[in-house]
Design a binder for these strands. Sequence first.
DNA 1: CGAATAGTGTCTATAAGACAGTATATC
DNA 2: GATATACTGTCTTATAGACACTATTCG
Lengths: 226, 226
Amino acid sequence: MSKYDATAYERPSVAVDLLIFTIEDERLKCLMIRRKEEPFADMLALPGVFVGIEETLEEAAQRGIREEAGLENIYFEQLYTFGGVRRDPRMRVISVSYMALVDRGMLAFKAGERTTQACLVDVEELLHAEGEEQIPVAFDHKDIIGYARWRLQNKVEYTSIAFHLVPEEFTLPELQKVYEILLGKNLYKANFRKKISDRIEETGKMTEGDAHRPSKLYRLKKSEDE
Amino acid sequence: MSKYDATAYERPSVAVDLLIFTIEDERLKCLMIRRKEEPFADMLALPGVFVGIEETLEEAAQRGIREEAGLENIYFEQLYTFGGVRRDPRMRVISVSYMALVDRGMLAFKAGERTTQACLVDVEELLHAEGEEQIPVAFDHKDIIGYARWRLQNKVEYTSIAFHLVPEEFTLPELQKVYEILLGKNLYKANFRKKISDRIEETGKMTEGDAHRPSKLYRLKKSEDE
DNA sequence: CGAATAGTGTCTATAAGACAGTATATC
DNA sequence: GATATACTGTCTTATAGACACTATTCG
């Protein structure tokens, strides 16, 4: 670091790309934007912002989440930094990706609706569709989503990250469904409950109005988390 | 991304900082450089290079490892990207950190010796020394090392990352010692062997010349790893 | 043979997995 | 009572942890 004068070098642009995940209709979805301009016009892309010279990476991510999704104070974490030379055909852009998780109820727009630009894209479809059905994705954003999907699956197993995808008060069947979606497999009720029992506490409330036995509402216990 | 013209913005510099870890004298050590210039003159710092405009992050990391440690083809992985606004008092520098692991035998310089600039610093000492004994570290590099230390401890538990810290052919007592150093606790021989038995294979060779029972030499089995 | 380190067998405790049963709403 | 979903008990299996024992080299 000491032997180079950075001012003499041509500098790349630094951007923050955002992966805002949620669960909708029992599917994992990612917030994406339909591009209006070249390159990749009319294709789907991750929302992102350039990092201001007086702004930390976290601040840039937070700003992006606010500007692109209208969200404040949601959970997010740095994912990975992508630095391929020709990721963006216009110029060199290094992209620090941040992954955010949010309960569907926090998102402003309604199911199916596409706001001016933003829409929720089914992650498995996007990643695994073949041939005709393949969804065109701009830049290297499909790779980024694939990496995030992988990390999410891993982190579900050893952290409480899944709790960010349900409301503050949730039922166990609801939470279990989120785990099943992220893990891609079904779980046994009894075992699931044993596993998470020490991370939750009862609210005293119950669900109402369903044509079957009501469910207890829980919340995440204080301490730990990630 | 589409609504901004990045060329209009002032751009940060992008550097790669390198954490090159090894085991020496049964201690985890990190390769560091004594700075000769301000800021932080005479303090220890992580080696690093600026990312060239036609160079991927991985290429920059690889180049740094070659230039600063004389190493080729060693294991490394991206760690985290640090983007605080005043990390470097001279200018805005965003640093993508890479963590490399190498067997002590691969490093050119001898124990205790300090090459022109490079030396091996005891990680626990650097992180936990208090008051008088505290080791002055430049920039936010102590935080970076602390983060790497934490990640290393986690990854030891669920990956084969520790194998990069021993020679290609190693004994189980030797490998166990590395695990103990990274985990910060002692392990039972029998249990350790059970746990890793399916990741290793015998070479057929044994250690020689010690005043006690010789030890079998193993190598990492193909497949998996991380 | 003693010192030193390498290597193994086995019991116990804890967690993961599977499945069957009971409970409580609405209609 | 039928249906639908919530919830619980318990057996089995796999894995982690603790400890005692045997093995092989040198001097």
